[in-house]
Design a protein around this nucleic acid. Structure first.
Lengths: 131, 131
DNA sequence: AAAAGTACGCACCTTTTGGTAACCATGTAG
DNA sequence: CTACATGGTTACCAAAAGGTGCGTACTTTT
């Protein structure tokens, strides 16, 4: 895992610099599941089970782990209702909502341009065998 | 690596669906180095060595590998000048330039909000030891 | 003659990531 | 009394990602 530099405040933010916190944050946000979770949380708070159903293929472990990481960087807020059986909701923070717009813009762009992106692509054909 | 589904054309694009090509594309774009390379290529074509100097910490292997992947999904074009010594330039395609805007928006957002994102964060302090 | 720059490819090995399965506590449904 | 749902945690292991170092081939510089 990427390590933060010793001296945070002296850096001017720059994702191209190896030791800049911005680079660490980019690596968190661009993790396999992070953008999907932020995207899924777009218009309402969701519970663990709901997120599992929306994001096809995520495991319980990775969902929990990624949510904890997103909490750590202030993008997601966890609401534990303290009931039995457990009821926990996840919500985007204000920062999270702000970033969500950038992420959704990317996700929608990819969806819209999907066919162009995979067109005329011999090596992608080769990858089709396993799944 | 994520595998593409058997039947591409029958899918409506949806990053949340495990087998949708959009999900594969998202995983490519959100790879550790992909967004940095696309971001770096913003206003002019760059050579291998220039990219290495701009993107601190990338290895030759990962640079080449990621450039090949970006070529595969039509985001980057490779121009080999066929000279000796070798002169090769990398350029964003039209698709690449279009996506670059979304990526840059994210990168700049992260840089702008960096201090807020890492503020008040005990566990990030713990990660500061190694690098 | 030797070294350095150019843009890689390949093999090897380590680190990181992520999946599976088992477990926990509790309450409700059948 | 048993099964199931809830929202997790933990240990174990396999796979993927990624770094290091070496080799290539040719030219220019020293």
């Amino acid at each position: 895992m990427y390590e933060l530099p010793q001296d945070i405040t002296q850096e001017k933010p720059d994702v191209f610099r190896k030791k800049c916190p911005a680079r660490y944050l980019l690596s968190r946000v661009s993790g396999k599941w992070s953008m999907l979770i932020v995207d899924a949380l777009h218009n309402k708070n969701l519970r663990n089970g709901e997120l599992m159903r929306i994001i096809e293929g995520i495991s319980q472990k990775m969902l929990t782990q990624t949510l904890r990481e997103l909490e750590e960087i202030q993008l997601v807020k966890r609401h534990d209702m303290q009931t039995v059986p457990p009821h926990v909701e996840y919500e985007l923070t204000e920062l999270g909502k702000s970033l969500r717009e950038k992420i959704c813009a990317m996700d929608r762009w990819i969806e819209e341009n999907m066919l162009e992106l995979i067109a005329n692509n011999p090596s992608i054909q080769l990858k089709r065998n396993k799944t």
